[in-house]
Nucleic acid binder design. Structure first.
Lengths: 244, 244
DNA sequence: GGCGTAAAAATAATTCAGATTTATTTAGGC
DNA sequence: GCCTAAATAAATCTGAATTATTTTTACGCC
């Protein structure tokens, strides 16, 4: 959905497939991909395989050197900030660490974005926030639509921060957000996240940076608490020592 | 240097060239790229052009649709968090806004990374930090080597944060850092940034999160002050209202 | 005559097949 | 130990066939 590769086309499917295989560890670091075998296995021509490999190379997942072949690069060189890479990892299994890292980043990014938004928001951006809030209000009862509205709200807030780079972090906040929304909404349909969101908008409207930052922290803390209550301690920060 | 495309090879050069043209605005949003003309203009075959376009598409810069052609996507859909895109933008001209956004992000990311590092660093990571510090100390006098050592220090710190996503933000801190280092060091060779860096390491060693965060803030503030002193108010946050 | 729907044409990317070139590693020769 | 040659796999090129989508055209209906 948020991919750069529309569903149509053979190339897109090959990229997705190879991306998942690499990100999931099914093809390990240093392993070489035999392009010819892949061409045969997937029933596509070399052109398609080559173009797909180029895309993976553009995201730092693989490298192609003459004579040595195409091999998986070490994890430390992957573009982990790429939306596709995040998605492939999420599908590939190691969601625990990924989600923990994403949550930490959100806790870092969003309060700051709220602060900036309170300082720099335009009238249009404020209107967008109001509209997203309305949409969240209206879609209560429809989990899927509500999750989309929630995401749109956070997107608008990041956009209002006036920092393009911060704004593009929406790709990183999205996965954690939708997971939370699905879980929480299915278990506790009466919960209403709108007031907490409205508090953020009110602070942004009043151009009060401290209040905006604080309201966003409260929102994230509440979301995190919901998650812990439902999923036990699954999202507790794991012991991170002794990582190579 | 930090690119995914080794200097060797025709493909890499075409990607660089097209990336710069798009990122610099030389080819504007919505404009279509005529692959056939490009093939003729650059003296390469369609295969190379197609594979290069795929890479740009992977970074969200362009989209290829049958019948309509290959066109530049709106800026809002570019992967601004991609190292190549950052580099192309930097070369393309709009450095003012880019550097301001990068600086804001650094001010957000690095103190948090220092805090996490103080909580979670391993002995090996601490040793890496010490080594980077030594290297900074030894390379005083050689601006280029010193800038590299400085960068390596910040990379080690991000790595010690124990958060892979945070760690990959090194791609974003690098451009601003080298610009600063070049400017400061050429104008004021006697300035010694090592003590400020050592303060961060000491706090990380002592596992004192508050001190680490504070030391990093101080470091960034000092760097920013240097920059302002030398470049006037060039990096003052511009008035960001009334952006569409 | 105006309008909406369905078939047909045009177009550019997409995919394919296979030959040629280039760079790099490994092995062999001086 | 250094230089040369063979082997290898990616890199590049060529040009044709295919596919999907837009635009146009034609037809029938109101």
């Amino acid at each position: 959905m948020s991919s750069s590769y529309p569903g149509r086309g053979v190339h897109g499917r090959v990229v997705e497939l190879l991306g998942e295989r690499v990100a999931s560890g099914m093809i390990r670091e240093g392993d070489t991909l035999d392009l010819r075998s892949l061409s045969a296995e997937l029933g596509v021509s070399m052109s398609v395989v080559r173009e797909s490999v180029r895309v993976l190379a553009a995201k730092g997942l693989v490298d192609s050197r003459q004579k040595r072949g195409t091999f998986v690069r070490p994890r430390t060189e992957w573009n982990l900030l790429d939306a596709d890479v995040v998605r492939w990892r999420a599908r590939g299994g190691d969601t625990a660490r990924l989600m923990a890292d994403l949550a930490e980043l959100r806790a870092l990014i969003e309060p700051a974005a709220a602060r900036f938004a309170a300082q720099r928001r335009t009238e249009n951006q404020l209107a967008d926030l109001d509209q997203a809030l309305d949409c969240m209000d209206r879609t209560r009862g429809d989990p899927r639509a509500h999750a989309l509205a929630d995401l749109e709200f956070h997107r608008c807030l990041l956009a209002a921060s006036g920092n393009e780079l911060l704004s593009r972090m929406d790709l990183l906040v999205a996965p954690g957000l939708v997971e939370r929304d699905i879980l929480v909404h299915s278990a506790d349909p009466k919960a209403d996240p709108v007031p907490a969101h409205r508090a953020v908008v009110d602070a942004v409207r009043a151009r009060n940076p401290d209040a905006a930052e604080q309201a966003m922290r409260a929102l994230l803390a509440a979301a995190d608490a919901d998650l812990r209550r439902l999923a036990g301690t699954a999202l507790d920060p794991p012991n991170r020592k002794d990582r190579p």
